[in-house]
């Protein structure tokens, strides 16, 4: 899940308008950019879509870390294509956010100065090639859990971008699992990398869904507006139930001694991640938090002259065209 702890805004709008708006949502209608919407709905969506977009862009970095070291030409091409897709997802999402009246540059500045966040998972390092497998399998797997229902979200541009993103994400997850299969069935060193990757990514993946709903004060309004479709606990349970048999198939051990199938609920009981670590990561104390923002800041600063030059050239061309007419 790429949007965590999204604070829902209360709305001070006219109660009649609010009721009519809610009725449209309840009837399953899509809200489009030019439609009236409560200020709180707009603000919450900007925050959520923006955080999602930032997660795609920052999420390029941990995988980009292995493109130059991919072990075969085919793996290199697949990984490049995947990271390129993530940049594309970022682009659709920034465009969806722009329909709400915020520019990509404004959102970027908010990411860089810490006013906006990105998913906690991308503050973790990728240390071996097996991490490319684990990220695809677990991280994209967790993202899909959240994004498939978001295809039905109430805001039209967001829902439509999710349709396209979900198609690509399921390819990403498959390629991740394929890497894990190779590693888990490979040499002793490869098996060790695979198990180590699972050990390091298991709890951070569970954290992607955010803290328990019991502690989440913002969920209710977002669920009524259909910009949050399922509870955090519901999605986390679904993720664990899907992933445990896959780990068994790979011959890998989930790093949780308490993990057991619970017949009564028809799902697994599992240990909670360390939520204090999660809050530390959100505060910017993840293992790679500083490096991630530093990399984005550097790209932004180093690219300034290119962006300025392109604008200047476009303006000159436009002026020449006007003069010729």
């Amino acid at each position: 899940m790429y949007a965590q702890m999204i604070k829902s805004e209360a709305s001070q709008d006219d109660p009649e308008k609010l009721a009519a708006f809610q009725a449209r949502i309840d009837a399953g209608e899509k809200i489009e950019p030019k439609d009236w919407m409560p200020a709180g709905y707009r603000k919450t969506l900007i925050r959520q879509i923006g955080q999602h977009a930032h997660s795609e862009i920052v999420g390029q970095l941990p995988e980009g870390n292995w493109i130059t070291r991919a072990p075969t030409l085919e793996r290199k091409a697949i990984l490049l294509a995947k990271v390129q897709d993530e940049a594309g997802h970022g682009l659709y999402l920034y465009c969806a956010a722009e329909t709400l009246g915020v520019s990509r540059d404004e959102l970027t500045e908010m990411l860089l100065d810490g006013r906006m966040k990105y998913s906690s998972i991308f503050a973790y390092p990728t240390l071996t090639w097996a991490d490319m497998g684990a990220v695809g399998w677990l991280v994209d797997g967790a993202a899909i859990m959240n994004q498939v229902p978001l295809q039905r979200t109430s805001y039209g541009p967001y829902a439509r971008s999710m349709v396209r993103i979900c198609k690509e994400e399921s390819f990403h997850q498959r390629q991740g699992f394929d890497i894990m299969m190779k590693m888990a069935n490979g040499t002793d060193a490869q098996k060790r990398m695979a198990q180590d990757a699972l050990n390091r990514f298991w709890y951070p993946s569970l954290m992607m869904f955010g803290p328990s709903d019991k502690e989440s004060v913002h969920s209710e309004q977002s669920m009524a507006w259909k910009i949050k479709m399922n509870s955090n606990d519901e999605l986390r349970q679904k993720f664990v139930d899907q992933t445990v048999p896959q780990a068994e198939y790979l011959g890998l051990t989930i790093p949780d001694e308490t993990l057991a199938f619970n017949e009564d609920k028809g799902g697994y009981d599992f240990a909670e991640p360390d939520w204090s670590e999660f809050f530390d990561v959100l505060k910017g104390n993840g293992p790679c938090s500083v490096e991630r923002i530093e990399a984005r800041q550097k790209a932004w600063d180093d690219g300034a002259w290119v962006r300025e030059a392109r604008l200047a050239h476009a303006a000159k061309k436009q002026a020449a065209k006007v003069a010729a007419e």
Partner: peptide, 16 residues
């Protein structure tokens, strides 16, 4: 090597 570090998203995609 540029992947994730280009001056704009469009350039990142094009370079990839």
């Amino acid at each position: 090597e540029w992947c994730g570090h280009a001056p704009a998203l469009e350039e990142d995609i094009a370079l990839a």
